[in-house]
């Protein structure tokens, strides 16, 4: 799993690529949190378009970043999850965190 961070005005995007499981989530978490704490953005977008596999560890990653961001009043959204990742996000009741498809961020 690789994570690339893009910074914009008041938001950051974490572009995740690869398989997201318990083994790889820890590394992703570290990279994202370092930037979250540095920039304290209003919005943190987790770009899931390159996530080829995800299990419940992905839900832990989303909720954990939401917890970190909420400390400084920020929020987290998920962009472009695969149909499959979406299934797990819905199972967790987090569909409201998915950005609409035509969203321009």
């Amino acid at each position: 799993m690789t994570v690339e961070i893009l910074t914009g005005e008041n938001y950051i995007t974490a572009v995740l690529k690869g398989e997201l499981d318990h083994c790889t989530a820890a590394g992703a978490r570290e990279i994202i949190d370092a930037r979250l704490e540095k920039y304290t953005p209003r919005l943190c977008i987790l770009d899931f378009s390159g996530v080829s596999f995800m299990d419940s560890s992905g839900i832990g990653l989303i909720l954990g970043r939401q917890r970190v961001a909420s400390v400084f009043g920020g929020s987290v959204r998920v962009k472009n999850p695969s149909r499959y990742a979406e299934k797990i996000i819905k199972l967790a009741g987090l569909e409201k965190m998915i950005l609409p498809e035509n969203c321009k961020v």
Binding site: A25, D55, S56, S57, G60, G64, A92
Partner: peptide, 14 residues
């Protein structure tokens, strides 16, 4: 505290 969501069994079941 380890960011487990408590959804593993729910995923297996679903």
């Amino acid at each position: 505290e380890e960011e487990r969501a408590g959804l593993g069994f729910a995923v297996m079941e679903a």
